[in-house]
Amino acid sequence: MKELTYHRAEDAASAVALVTGDPDARFLGGGTNLVDHLKLGVTSPTTLVDVSRLPMDEVAELPDGGLRVGANVRNSDLAAHPAVRRGWPVVARALLAGASGQIRNQATTGGNLLQRTRCVYFQDVTTPCNKREPGTGCSAIGGYGRYNAVLGASEACVTTHPSDLAVGLAAVDATVVVLGAGGERRVPMGDFHRLPSDRPEQDTTLAHGELVTAVELPASAVARRSTYRKARDRASYAFALVSVAAGVDLDDDGRVRDVRIAWGGVAHKPWRAAVAEEALRGKFLSEESVREAAEAELAAAVTDEQTAYKVPMVRNLTALTLTSLAEGATR
């Protein structure tokens, strides 16, 4: 590990100025991913700017019924917040499906969105990886590929985004509030993470030095009736093979007035299944109609023998999630 200069940020603006002005500086939040990467040598910053004590730790109800979540709100506190449990159960469920109790006490809302892939090659500095070292190649293509993407991958990178929270936020149309040297801007969740293209080293659309200060959740009927399901190798404390964040609003006849579907474990970013959503609007929600809608979305999937299982798995999990939501299940 390189020598490390540590700054405790006085305020958000000076933290942004420090990191913006130094390409080898990084923000430090809860540290659960970054500290591991320092040890593994995945990243070698020379300066850390600790933003974890900045007063961005409140969950505030907005006048329009929405919620503003400070970037430093810990994952466990966000999952336990009464307004989140009531109005955005998919967000609470996604958080509770991720990591362990200890890590949820440490990890922040902003940091969760900025965690990096758990691709074994990204974390193993002895192997080529375009995300870690641009231009070196992708070891996951033709290597251990069980966790690889099936949608939106590129020749440069086939990894998936590891966050559960981000999938839940994508489903409820959250907005990420970002502070940069030029001031504040608001980024819709769908535009926050990116597909790998030929620049897989860029997980997000943030510029170096831009700081996530908050995440805003708009209130909606689909958010109130929403949940998150995750398929994984162990019952607990494992990353997703695939996951589904979904919400639904039915009219009095039981037809779909509105629906939200986002998938985890299938792409370099949370995958909002817009084709499937459109296919379901105005329809009766049944196992069959959801499967058909999911298959329309998955027509674009590219698989190999290691990832082929993901297509039926995410289709079936989507059907299970939405039909159980329609039947009034809370989990």
Partner: peptide, 21 residues
């Protein structure tokens, strides 16, 4: 989890935390 302590009253891993922070 073998490095778990209570940090300011909550369970916390000490291996993924910098002391200075």
């Amino acid at each position: 989890g073998s490095c778990t302590v209570l940090l300011d009253g909550r369970r916390h891993l000490t291996c993924l935390a910098l002391a200075v922070a």
